Amino acid sequence: MGAADIVPGVSGGTIAFITGIYEELINSIKSVSWKTVVILKQQGIAAAWSSINGWFLLTLFSGILFSVFTLAKLISFLLVAYPEMLWSFFFGLVLASVWHISQQIKVWRWINIVPVLLGVLVAWGAGSATPAEVEATTLNLFLSGCLAICAMILPGVSGSFILLLLGMYSVILDAVKSLDIAVLAVFAGGCIVGLLTIANLLAWTFKRFHDYTLLVLTGFMIGALDKVWPWKETISFRTNSHGEQVPLLQSNVLPGTFETITGQPSQLGLALVSAASGIVIVLLLEKMGRSRH
């Protein structure tokens, strides 16, 4: 989940869904509330820890943090040096994930297309939005954490891309690489508030509208395929906070068109291998998720 969350366009929630821990994750986060404090006072630490599924959350978030801090530099390098292969890998990952989630719908009816289309439109609209430049104030860092973590927990909606839209992606990534505790602490505070909020909402929707929630999430992931398409034509650029020219608006193109426009090889063969690797990983994770239950 941590590795996926680093890449703009890919969601850690997708990985949670593939491995079969998504609903347990949502319900565990939801259980962290004022009631936990009451249990702590009345029954002690062990009872409070058990009430929030503490070992599950500790193990999961330790893995996420470990991955973020160890892979931030590697992912940044791959996005620059081997973008077609990296995006192809995640395209295969998301494509196979769409199939995986759709298999969990209990009853398929024609009306199911409505929530799927809703999810597609939301994810596609977010992916097509133009990145902004927001000053990295304490309030903006906190609010960015709230919004990004909500996206990170939703399959198909990328928290990193939300940060990119807000102009905060490079700020947070630099803070991770340089261990800027002040920036990370404010951002983490926003993440905690946002996480508890979205977990309660998702837990309620899963309980009341299980299949429709899955259908919307399936739409999110279909819409995300547009963002993770490996070959793009850059229409315009912007200058980031470091004074570097980075893509602002891009459109998807075919591999042959990409070679014509850029004069660079499309790396089609390696891209197909990368996409196939993503699909295989989803199938393996799905098998792990089934064996877990």
Rank of each mutant, 00 (worst) to 15 (best):
M1Y: 13
G2S: 03
G2E: 06
G2Y: 00
G9D: 01
V10F: 05
A16D: 00
F17W: 07
I18T: 02
E23V: 04
I29C: 01
V32F: 07
T36P: 02
V38D: 14
A46L: 12
A47F: 10
W49A: 13
S51K: 04
F56P: 00
T59E: 07
F61A: 07
I64K: 01
L65W: 11
F66H: 06
F69E: 09
A72W: 11
K73R: 10
F77K: 11
F77S: 11
L79H: 02
Y82E: 14
Y82W: 11
P83F: 04
W87Y: 14
F91M: 05
G92Y: 02
V94S: 01
A96S: 15
V98I: 13
W99Q: 14
W99I: 15
I101E: 00
K106W: 09
W110T: 14
N112H: 12
I113Y: 09
P115L: 03
L121F: 13
V122F: 01
A123G: 05
G125N: 04
A129H: 06
A132G: 06
E135V: 11
T138Y: 05
L139K: 05
L143T: 02
C150L: 06
I153P: 00
P155M: 13
S158L: 12
S158H: 10
G159L: 04
G159F: 02
S160F: 05
S160H: 04
L164R: 03
M168P: 00
D174L: 10
V176W: 01
V176L: 13
L179Y: 11
L179S: 09
A182L: 10
A182V: 10
L184W: 00
L184I: 00
A188E: 00
G194M: 06
G194I: 03
I198N: 00
N200V: 08
A203G: 15
W204H: 11
F206N: 06
R208C: 06
R208D: 13
F209A: 06
D211T: 10
L214I: 15
L217A: 04
L217E: 10
G219S: 09
I222A: 03
G223F: 00
A224M: 13
L225V: 07
W231A: 00
E233Y: 06
S236K: 03
F237E: 11
T239F: 14
H242R: 12
H242E: 14
E244S: 06
E244T: 10
P247Q: 09
L249G: 05
Q250N: 07
S251N: 14
P255A: 12
P255Y: 04
F258E: 07
E259F: 07
I261L: 15
G263Y: 06
P265G: 02
S266K: 04
L268P: 04
L268K: 06
G269T: 14
L270W: 11
V273W: 07
A275C: 08
S277E: 10
G278L: 07
I279M: 13
L285C: 15
E286L: 05
E286F: 08
